[in-house]
Write a protein that binds this DNA or RNA. Structure first.
Lengths: 404, 404
DNA sequence: TAGACTTTGCCCGATCGCCGAACAAAGCAT
DNA sequence: ATGCTTTGTTCGGCGATCGGGCAAAGTCTA
């Protein structure tokens, strides 16, 4: 074979991902402004690699559409002083809905993610979609009509988190174990028909994971959100995006086998993480000891009171969670693990056990820079979802020509 | 608050990922032609959603650059007969290098992925990068000079798989446990200086995983490649792309704890999967029973001979692997699990154990459509890497104006 | 205090990739 | 033979971007 070496197509951009190389996606500019990462046109140009002229064009469009305001001038850095840009928080509103097994939180946010108004009600998800969503609809209308704010606001989008697997592309729950009657219910259409805006539905842990990653741990590309409450679940952010897996059931770690104990589980197997460390299981065992504990919140209460049995139990639950997590850390190699859910309210005790198990068993290379931290966003995570979705699902700005 | 509902920005493209919506990336056209998914211009236009004129432009550029040939006419489907396009397999060559702990395979492929020439040599990776890569360089030169083929071929790229973690963006190994002396060694530069073409380096399981996903399981977006040999590792394909994790150590599942046995492991812990089900551990235990077994290949031999102890042991190893895998299936929810590595040569026995454990313990929703299958590509996977990298890292075609 | 320099932002022409319509080519149907 | 269908090409236009030039508005220096 007569071989020639090709002319050098060598270049050093061994890019990590097939993401658009310099120009990035539309919405990128808005994300930079809203996150405060770049607040002047020149700064945006430097960060994105776009030409200054292009940035001006895009920013003008954002201003024309009312998404961005041009503020006063910023201090000069040696030349002409830049004009500062900021997200126009008034004028628009976004609804965030967090539906849990037994509660329902509805929030109204501005497009910066700040909570304008919120309401929480007890609610049984087993009452079915019509009842639950009807309640959400009424609550949302109430919030829209009664919330403070002199400026008129336009509802732009609705984000909903539900406690079960969701086929994200259609927004329909698929065989959700604790949501009887919701299988394949068209939640997006429900809201889109009634409010005329896009509605996005997702699993609650996915929502929380994304919210933590976008709003609190934005330096992190690979993150796990562990929810330790009545049950145990996990949201996965891989390369900055939610990993849902083939059937959308990824992150269902509650029934991974752990340790030697053969605790029977409602799933039919035994030794499941949830049966050993879930809030329901812990409450069961505390009751066997003669203590009053109906659910996760009672456990938190007992731990806060310093009850030794409860503390020991939570700590041991942490170790069980940590043992499973140590495997997942080896497998997935995240940068950050965020622990949330009802039991994270006592994260001193819970995380001690988790860290102990993870650092004992995981690959040192993987744990070297690993952070295991309590949720920074807390209960508002579910409602904050839209603010994080915003940056992943770009708004439709600057497409049409002239707005007004 | 005076609320107006915004005008309907409703549209039904609730896209799953922020991938370029219809037009796809450059290189897409080439991928369609080379995979045989679309072999005429009109077909490409229909598949990609591009305008027919655009397709023509791109195809012309590919032809001009010599990547594609225009064949004879295809039978008419009722109108003007289409002209069939095919990948120009001659003229170009790609090198695939699979470096293992104790062997080294070098292959020469055409850009369609067909093996033109190959050579395998025993080799100790602990001899260090200069010795090993020097050998690869000589082998590759030999192959380039002596291989058959009347047409002259231009070497376009080199792909290398190594048995340890690699920081993919720089192509440097990072703290590889079984590759002493390789830490931070600049492998890409070694090849790029000597052959003048781009060289990509990756972990061997990543390479195998991507090769299986692209070449054998192209209907699958989420895939795990389990390598069961002397050690145990895992390559992760999430959403069609390799997941490397924060430090590039994702997939290191050999030291996940499994079962009740406290087998000590070389990592310092005990009960690790590798210490229970790895080829080295199995060989140790077979020797304790008085059998001759130095490594994985001997185990395969014994199983093939029908040795009951070896069969029992491999099957049990499969169960241990399956127990870990069941957790990973719950967590990651893959569509396909491919089992490769030396022990996969007896996959009848190994997979029986794996499937048994997975189907017993994993979430039925996740296992419902899960496939657990032996490697389809086998030992050539490492060398086939370049063919799969090709479609993920687009070639630089049709940029300049006129080639020749 | 007056220029020189720096930085920012805008304007304008050029380019690039793509689309859509019109058109030519080449077979099939009646 | 005539029309229909399918394929592929040509051509004009559009939208996004780039890059240069230039005005604006500061700071720095003599």
């Amino acid at each position: 074979m007569n071989v020639r070496f090709s002319s050098p197509p060598l270049s050093s951009d061994r890019g990590s991902a097939p993401s658009p190389p310099p120009g990035q996606t539309p919405g990128e500019v808005l994300a930079l402004i809203s996150s405060g990462a770049a607040v002047t046109r020149a700064e945006i140009a430097r960060r994105t690699g776009l030409a200054r002229s292009t940035v001006s064009l895009r920013v003008d469009a954002l201003i024309a559409h009312g998404f961005v305001d041009e503020d006063t001038e910023a201090p000069s850095t040696g030349g002409r002083p830049p004009r500062r840009l900021s997200l126009r928080t008034h004028g628009h509103a976004i609804a965030g809905v967090d539906i849990g097994a037994s509660h329902c939180r509805v929030g109204l946010l501005d497009i910066g993610g700040a909570l304008l108004a919120a309401r929480e009600d007890p609610l049984n998800i087993a009452d079915g979609p019509e009842a639950v969503l009807g309640h959400v609809e009424r609550t949302l209308h109430t919030l829209l009509e009664t919330a403070d704010g002199t400026a008129s606001r336009t509802l732009r989008a609705i984000g909903v988190g539900v406690p079960g697997p969701v086929e994200f592309s259609t927004g329909r729950p698929v065989d959700p174990p604790i949501m009887p009657g919701w299988h394949q219910y068209p939640i997006p259409e429900f809201f889109e028909e009634r409010f005329g805006v896009r509605a996005l539905i997702d699993n609650d842990v996915n929502v929380m994971a994304l919210a933590e990653q976008r709003l609190a741990f934005s330096d992190t590309l690979h993150l796990l959100y562990l929810k330790v409450g009545t049950g145990i679940g996990c949201g996965i952010v891989a390369d900055g995006r939610i990993h849902r897996g083939a059937q959308g059931s990824a992150g269902d770690i509650g029934h991974i086998r752990v340790g030697e104990r053969d605790e029977p589980c409602r799933c039919g197997n035994s030794g499941c993480l949830e049966a050993i460390a879930g809030g329901a299981a812990l409450a069961d065992r505390l009751r066997e000891l003669g203590l009053e504990a109906a659910g996760s919140l009672d456990i938190v209460q007992l731990v806060r009171e310093g009850n030794r049995e409860a503390v020991r139990m939570v700590r041991e639950a942490g170790r069980a969670v940590g043992e499973v997590l140590s495997g997942l850390v080896n497998f997935f190699n995240p940068e950050t693990v965020v622990v949330g859910g009802a039991l994270a309210a006592v994260h001193d005790q819970l995380l001690a056990g988790v860290r102990e198990a993870v650092y004992r068993r995981s690959n040192p290379l993987a744990t070297h820079v690993l952070r295991i931290e309590p949720s920074r966003i807390g209960e508002n995570g579910g409602r904050s979802a839209p603010a994080s979705w915003r940056s992943s699902t770009p708004c439709p700005p600057h497409r049409s020509t002239a707005p007004s």
